[in-house]
Design a binder for these strands. Sequence first.
RNA 1: GGUCGGUUGGCCGAGUGGCUAGGCAGAGGUCUGCAAAACCUCGUACAGCGGUUCGAAUCCGCUACCGACCUCCA
Length: 498
Amino acid sequence: MGLIDQLVVFNSLSRKKEVFEPQIPGQVGMYVCGPTVYSDVHLGNVRTFISFDIIYRYLQHLGYKVRYVRNLTDVGHLLDDGQDRVSKRARLEQIEPMEIVQKYTNSFHDTLRLFNTLSPNIEPRATGHLIEQIEMVQEILANGFAYERNGSVYFDTVKFHETFKNYGELSGRKIEELFAETREDLKNQDEKNHPSDFAIWMKAADEHIMKWNSPWSVGFPGWHLECSVMSTKYLGETFDIHGGGNDLKFPHHENEIAQNIGAKGKAPVKYWLHTNMLLMNGKKMSKSDGNTISPEELISGNSPHVTKGYDPMVVKFFMLQSHYRSTLDLTDEALQAAEKGYYKLTEGLKALEKLTTDQAGEGQLDQEINGLLDLITDDMNDDFNTPKAISRLFDLTNYINKLKDGHLAANAVGTECLEHMKRAFKAFFLDVFGLSLDSGAGQGDDIVEGLMGLVIAIRQKARENKNWETSDQIRDGLDNIGIQLKDGKEGTVWSKKS
RNA sequence: GGUCGGUUGGCCGAGUGGCUAGGCAGAGGUCUGCAAAACCUCGUACAGCGGUUCGAAUCCGCUACCGACCUCCA
């Protein structure tokens, strides 16, 4: 009985929350800008991909059939000095560009797997779509929104804006001001008619490695073009959701829209979703200025920014405790708090699995518990409010612990409600949030379980004999190797310490 | 400089006109052989200044500070 029974998303285009209505009922097309595979992903990228992973999972949870496309950029993304990122890296590492692409694609996948994200349905590469990109350049040229200059082709932003009046719509900048501003920089703009024009095909210099034949020159496609092409190819000329970090709004997404309209005559995307930046020490985490920590460093603890390593699930949980549209400041202290909270929930879920009741009818807590479960859906329906949804899981855990410890009678909850709670808690924690139980605490293989059972039994015997020296030796010894014993009413359980 | 966003208790972080967010840390208590875990109780926070309102952390204006984009980044 949620208050909100419809999914509402914040659309960057309108800057408002809108009811989500896919163009084909029951089906969702979602495109997310993936990484340029020329170096290891950093944590800010990971946050964005985790955010869209949650969105993907939640859409599926709601019953939508989702086609999730996330590209890999392997050509055309240039550095300030005009060098292709992949090519430059290939030169530095003295291997083929495509080896670079493969190496960092593998690394990207490995990293995301650590965080238990689902693979997209299609992961297209820019170099795999050269023909389509050339075709789109031709379309844009044919429609008069591009011009050729010395073998390169540039998108004509001035003409585009005169025609459609919406260049700058997404990023919220007034195009006249943008034009006026950049006019002073004309000296740097050599071939372009106007500074805000951008290349959709670039002629390659002789020494350039990654280049292809085209009607205009031996060259390579512009950075923004691939996303227009691949989203159109796999999701159609108009589709539902386009996502990415908000640092891509301008120029990348703005230009993407312009290209699609320039080629197809219509705006490609109904809902633009943008994630906010991950900060560290109050500043944007960024590859280019060194204020960064890699996923590996964060997990291993091998970084001056953290006092210890953190389990990937803890890092993910930390991220989910803020909203995807808010900045999130990564600090060691905040991670430690998240770690404790995360284990509280995993322990709660494990305790929940063991709860039983013989209350066949309705229990006195049923209404409150069912209400909390409904609120989780409301929260997620409200633009994927994971922090709020997680607060409900903590509330539920409080009930679970009371039931577990006997502070509440077992039959305070009815059979049906208990089953509902088990189903829903798992559905959100494991399936929607993609968290897992077994990474941090208390579950080993059969041998470990057997050994622990034996050790706990020996300690229990010592305690019965009031042999505190032995029982404390066992407890402290286990503590030293990172295992915590918890004595409860129903006996002793153990878990790995956080 | 232009554009946009933010400033919430010791820390992180939701909320956006009247109803306890939540987590972590801290204090006291229950339980325990002692601890831990769990449970109970405890914080009267919303940058500053004005304004609108019966009522504002929440709306409006100004100021300060922070950040992002404008140029490669998710």
